[in-house]
C-alpha cells in the first residue's frame, strides 16, 4: 500500500484522483491483456513492426535534429556569456568569440569581485539615502524567495488538504473559486493592489510580500488537491483511533507522506521568486533583491559603452545558484506533475 502511494505521489491528476486503486488495477489487467494479445498476434505484429520502424525513424529523426539545434542554440548564448564574463573590457571589444586573453589565472576574475563592489542601488532610508550593495541584495533575495515560496506553498497545501479531506459545502465552493480564478483573466489590477498594500502597511516590507503571496489560488492548489485525494484515508483514521487530533494528523502523518511534492512545489516557487524582479521593483523600493539589482544595473546603461563583461558576471552570479539547484534536482522538478481538464 505504501509503495503504491509512493508511486502515485508525483502523479497528479484531478480526474484520476477519485479512483486511484481502480486505475492501477485496470493497468494490471491491461498489461495481462496485452501479454495475451502478444502471443496471439505475434506473427502479425513482427511484420507490422518492421513497416512501422521506418515511419518512426524519419519523423523522430527530424524532431531529434530540431531538438539538438534547439539545445545548442540555448546553451550557446549561456556559455558565450560565461566566457565573456571573464574578459576585460578591451578584450571583449576586439575578441568577441574567442577565449579570454591569457591563461585561466590571468583571466578577468576581478569582474566578479567588482560586481560586489560596484553593483549598488541608492535607497532612501530615514533622512538620507544609502547604497545597497550586491551582497545585501543577495540576502534580500533569499529572504524574499524563501519566505514567499514557503508561504505560497504552505497555504496552498493546507487549503488543498482541507478541501480534499473535509467534504463540507464550503470545500466545494473553494475548489470552484480556484478553477474560476484560474480561467477568469483579470487584467490590470496591479494599481489597485499597490493601493491595498499601502493601505494595509504591507508596502515596502518583505514580510508584507510574504503575506501577499500566501494565497492558495493557482495551479499548485490543484497539484496538492490531487495528491491529498490519492492518500488513503486509512493512515489518518488509524491515527484518529489512537486519539490524535486534526493538527497532529496533518503535521505528523499527512505532511511526511507528501513531503516530496511539497518540496518540489516549494522549489519551483523558490526559483520563480528568486528570478522575479518585477514585483520587488514595484513593492520593495528599499529592499532591492539581486534580480532587481541586475535589472537596475543592466538597463540603466544598456546602450552606453559600458562594461559588458561585468554585467555578464552579474548575470552569472544570479544564474549559477539556480542552475546548480536545477541540475541537481532536475529529475524531481520535471517529474510527472499533470493536470487534466477544467471541471466546474
Amino acid at each position: 500500500m505504501e509503495n503504491n502511494t509512493e508511486k502515485n505521489k508525483n502523479f497528479v491528476s484531478d480526474e484520476s484522483a477519485s479512483g486511484d486503486r481502480s486505475v492501477s488495477c485496470e493497468k494490471q489487467v491491461c498489461a495481462a491483456d496485452a501479454a495475451l494479445a502478444e502471443d496471439v498476434f505475434i506473427e502479425k505484429k513482427t511484420s507490422v513492426k518492421q513497416k512501422r520502424k521506418f515511419n518512426f525513424s524519419i519523423l523522430m529523426l527530424i524532431l531529434g535534429i530540431i531538438l539538438v539545434l534547439y539545445s545548442v542554440s540555448l546553451v550557446l548564448p549561456i556559455i558565450w556569456g560565461m566566457i565573456c564574463s571573464l574578459k576585460t573590457k578591451a578584450d571583449f571589444r576586439t575578441n568577441v568569440f574567442g577565449l579570454p586573453e591569457g591563461w585561466p589565472w590571468n583571466w578577468a576574475w576581478e569582474n566578479y569581485e567588482s560586481v560586489f563592489q560596484t553593483f549598488m542601488i541608492p535607497v532612501e532610508s530615514g533622512a538620507g539615502t544609502r547604497n545597497v550593495y550586491f551582497l545585501e541584495m543577495m540576502w534580500y533575495s533569499i529572504l524574499y524567495a524563501v519566505g514567499c515560496s514557503f508561504a505560497a506553498t504552505f497555504i496552498a497545501s493546507v487549503v488543498a488538504y482541507l478541501v480534499a479531506k473535509f467534504p463540507y459545502k464550503f470545500s466545494k465552493i473553494v475548489y470552484t473559486v480556484v478553477i474560476v480564478a484560474m480561467i477568469l483573466p483579470i487584467v490590470g489590477s496591479l494599481p489597485s493592489e499597490i493601493q491595498m498594500a499601502r493601505a494595509l502597511g504591507f508596502f515596502d516590507h518583505i514580510w508584507g510580500l510574504w503575506l501577499m503571496k500566501a494565497n492558495f489560488l493557482g495551479l499548485y492548489f490543484l497539484v496538492f488537491h490531487g495528491v491529498f485525494k490519492n492518500i488513503p484515508q486509512e493512515f489518518s483514521d488509524a491515527a484518529y483511533v489512537d486519539g490524535a487530533g486534526n493538527l497532529t494528523v496533518l503535521f505528523r502523518i499527512v505532511y511526511p507522506i507528501i513531503k516530496n511534492t511539497f518540496f518540489t512545489v516549494m522549489l519551483l516557487n523558490f526559483i520563480a521568486f528568486w528570478n522575479d524582479y518585477q514585483i520587488p521593483l514595484i513593492y520593495l523600493p528599499s529592499f532591492p533583491t539581486a534580480a532587481y539589482g541586475l535589472y537596475w544595473f543592466t538597463s540603466a546603461s544598456l546602450n552606453t559603452n559600458s562594461n559588458v563583461p561585468m554585467k555578464l558576471a552579474g548575470c552569472m552570479i544570479v544564474l549559477v545558484p539556480i542552475l546548480v539547484l536545477f541540475l541537481f534536482f532536475s529529475n524531481r522538478l520535471i517529474g510527472n506533475i499533470t493536470i487534466g481538464g477544467l471541471k466546474e
Partner: peptide
C-alpha cells in the same frame, strides 16, 4: 531538461545574455 531550462533561468539574466 533543456526545454525546461529557460523557465528556471532568471528572465533578466537570460535577456542580458
Amino acid at each position: 531538461v533543456m526545454l525546461f531550462l529557460p523557465s528556471i533561468i532568471s528572465a533578466i539574466a537570460m535577456s542580458v545574455m
